[in-house]
Design a protein around this nucleic acid. Sequence first.
DNA 1: TCGATCAAAATTGTATCCAATCATGACGAC
DNA 2: GTCGTCATGATTGGATACAATTTTGATCGA
Lengths: 230, 230
Amino acid sequence: MSEDQDKTLPVDRRIEADITRAIYDQRMPPGTRLSEERLGELYDVSRTVVRKALFQLSSRKLVEIRANRGARVAQPSAAQAREVFAARATLEAAMLEESMTRLTPADIDALRATLAHDHDTPTNETDAAESIAESGDFHKALARLHGNPILQEFLDELIGQTSLIIALYRPREAELCSHAAHGELLDAIEAGDAARARETMHEHLMDCLDALALEPPPADALADMLGRAR
Amino acid sequence: MSEDQDKTLPVDRRIEADITRAIYDQRMPPGTRLSEERLGELYDVSRTVVRKALFQLSSRKLVEIRANRGARVAQPSAAQAREVFAARATLEAAMLEESMTRLTPADIDALRATLAHDHDTPTNETDAAESIAESGDFHKALARLHGNPILQEFLDELIGQTSLIIALYRPREAELCSHAAHGELLDAIEAGDAARARETMHEHLMDCLDALALEPPPADALADMLGRAR
DNA sequence: TCGATCAAAATTGTATCCAATCATGACGAC
DNA sequence: GTCGTCATGATTGGATACAATTTTGATCGA
């Protein structure tokens, strides 16, 4: 959907954007070490500028920097995951309700289009990543209708963190953020029922949260992972 | 209210905190140049660490960094000012409404105490700064009741930016964020009327926005400032 | 006297270097 | 044989040195 990077982007921005994209696309899993020297080699640049990029990323909570221990792709805790979804629920519900008064039919059509295009994409198992990204895009499209760039940018941040959360806590089977739910959402919007739209959004995000496997991993996850009885 | 810095704070954090405080207290006006070398001298540290602090501050939009032109205390435009207040209205109204269900009488008492203490402070003209900071504290106290650290932190950011906006656009006479409004807010909260509380919060912030002198400055503000007819 | 061009100074951006801290592996004691 | 200690290596944190850009002011010309 979004095109490749601008050629004129400063190198540090470029690194930042590349890592961000890699995280969004689930190519770079939580916990991945980000060595300053290695990144410097890859982009043919000194550690100074790499560090700059890493700091930017850490301020968006996509990477964690621990003193003297380097940077890793962030691994939000279960508690943080809940907080992110709760924050999204509060924010997106409020934004949506406020948007409702000034929604044009054209806006709604555009949303349907996004959803349709979304549905088109073949659900090959390998890129569930694709599906996740496009689900995020739908939420971003909704937020854009509200018209406040500050809230929009903040939500982008939260959606970014959601990528990490999904990577960490998505159960094997289920798909998150079902298309069906987005459809329901659109129905409520089209009906012009602000209160219901708000409520639907809130529930949708809480459903997404509930679909995650946030429970404390079984006491010895190790044995489980190895497929051995203890 | 909040005490002086922790002694064990890393230097870059310390610089960040000091500048933040100076901005909040209206001692460091928008547009102030922040020379890397000068700051380095002041804290007896190299530019490397100063830059780190400045970048942090710029990610919170308290300072603006322009390529090869150094850092200044940010000067939000009138448009940005509107966006900040609109974002606060949306967010704080939503948070407040959600908080209402789980508010205890103790919480309300604590808020009244904050407000009373707030009222106590003598309104000497010199520190209108004090009054601004405490008004911010009241809003932060409300947000804390919601219980979501992510939204809380984000709101802190917005309130910080509000300091800059007030510094830039407060008209000579008026006080912003009147105590009266906070009193009304508390009444609505105490009455347990979530919808009214939400609406009151929204209106309060919009009133604050309207009280600002955001209009494009008269074509030659310079002449005005010098008290000369053109 | 005003304006433009150009040179010098100051300031930021980046690279490199050294110091400090943490991780890894070997050795030795129990 | 296992655990603890210590030394070595790798990696980050910070300071300095250098390059690039901008700003300032000075000189020259109209």
